[in-house]
Amino acid sequence: MANTAVADADSGLTRAQLAARHGLSVAGARPTLAAYVKQVWFYRHFITTYANAKAVSAFSQARLGQMWQVLTPLTNAAVYYLIFGVIIGTSRNVPNFIAYLCVGVFVFNFAQLVILGGTSAITGNLGLIRALHFPRASLPIAVTLTQLRNLLYAMAVLVVIVLATGEPITLQWLLVVPAMVLMTIFNAGLAMALARLGAKLTDMKQIMPFVMRTWMYGSGVLYSVKAFEQNLPAVLAHLVNVNPLLIYIELVRHALLENTVLTSPAPRLWLLAVVWAVVMGVGGFIYFWRGEQEYGRG
């Protein structure tokens, strides 16, 4: 074992040349985009298992346990019913206001929790990142899936509320599925973009709650944004109309409720929904991939 003491027993090669000669690769190098997509697909079982585990462990310390998956949206709806249905007693000229409100709250909540979770997807999991090797995009994608799972419970509650408020079951209800698929892609892209931003700018976690509150008022969650057009300059009003969260909320309302007043015609909303999903989904993924090798650093 005498020769082990010599670190470089090679024939005058530099270390980089030696590495190339034996086919060694740079540790933690960023894979190509195509290879990265393949890796993420290969890790799909890890992503879904991790997302489910996170959803389950969120309630594991509560006495009622997994009941909270249904109780959370139910309580949410009850609070809004109490405030807007009973105390204020307003419908703000919206037919079936309670159902209208619940769609807005549940769908917006999905986006909000994904966005807040995505912002800390990297910074909150540094232990896992420094311990195990997996494509880091798994984390923001898992955040999205965890919240999608919560949304499905909320949707079950929503269907009950919608039926209880006297809406008929129609074929149009099926449109909820593509709307949710598009929104999930949009959310995943946004979660990935924010995960990278949040890893670089640690102040993001403080800023995001304010961004989300502003975004909520512009997304027609609690009221219709129709009135905005009279008060806002044309540019801003247009901006509100192409707001992706407003679009996804409106599409779900359009699918579930009979007499919804849309801000734009339905085909235009669908077109915008697809454009947002593609732009955010692909853009967010590429943006996240470009930072892949940086995520281990504190």
């Binding site: 980089a16 933690g28 281990g296």
Partner: peptide, 10 residues
């Protein structure tokens, strides 16, 4: 799991 700031690891 952690990128090098200078140099390289193969």
């Amino acid at each position: 799991l952690m990128p090098v700031n200078r140099g390289a690891i193969y």
